[in-house]
Amino acid sequence: MSMLIKFIAVSIASGTPILFGTLGEIITEKVGHLNLGVEGMMAIGACAGFMVGMSTDSFLLALLAAFAAGAFAALIYAVLTVTFMANQNVTGLTLTIFGVGFANFCGYYAIGKSESGTLKLPENITAQMRNINIEGLSDIPVIGPLLFSYNPFVYIGIVTALLLWFYLRRTKTGLNTRAIGENPAAADAAGIKVTKWKYINICLGGGICGIGGAYTIMIINKGVWISDCVGGLGWIAVALVIFAGWSPVKAIFGSFIFGALRQLKYYVPAAITIPGAFYDMLPYLITTIVLIATSIRTSREKSQPEACGTNYFREER
């Protein structure tokens, strides 16, 4: 029993960086832009968050820096695809290569400048990143570890997801946003400022990805800098967007499932011998099946926004 609770708790934490990446990608795709640069934006966010965290020793400033850096990386993408109408796939992939390269480059450079040869976040900030422990609440059996035992990112992630759901589903700007992703020409004709909202959503999405990147370096690597710290989580995040059917709330549960898949191999009884690689493959395999299933059922609700992947040029009709 306690094993099961521990597994669930670990899964939820493990899914959190993926959740951030997915949320960022969802609102980007909702305005009709497929940004394959999630991995890169996460890497840049991780780098900025880490560097600022190390020099200011403030968790909040580190988070803000991660957000700002991710948003800035997304801004490059937005300028190229929205204003300059460059191919989205190519721009996104470039952003990934550039972002991961840039983060590794900066990390390597900073290590070279440091005296000890390693980079580590100071004590004050690591204390703030630790799993919360609320007197009384965290000690309740079952509920305590399941609800009140996570690092702050987990709560930030869930709140962000709920806010995004509210934004997309319950506000007028959210409705406009979705209209842009489905049919930008119609949205434009209805008086929605297509370019402006594309920029805002893409940058917001990049910022959220950046926070996910900060998670990878601060929690997964426990505040010690390593190269390639995102390690492919950005791509799982892109997969989760499909699995979650472009819904922020479903993304929460999807991230728990993907997190569980990432942890499953450590918890399966030794008697069951399934190759370890199979567990790592599962998120992608399941996503592929979901992708095919939704395309066979041609479910409009759970598929990619109609105009996603194509740039909008007002004078081309």
Partner: peptide, 13 residues
């Protein structure tokens, strides 16, 4: 079926 996403997943499979 969306080929961009499908081919992307196949990389990791």
């Amino acid at each position: 079926t969306n080929e961009t996403l499908f081919t992307l997943m196949l990389n990791y499979i």
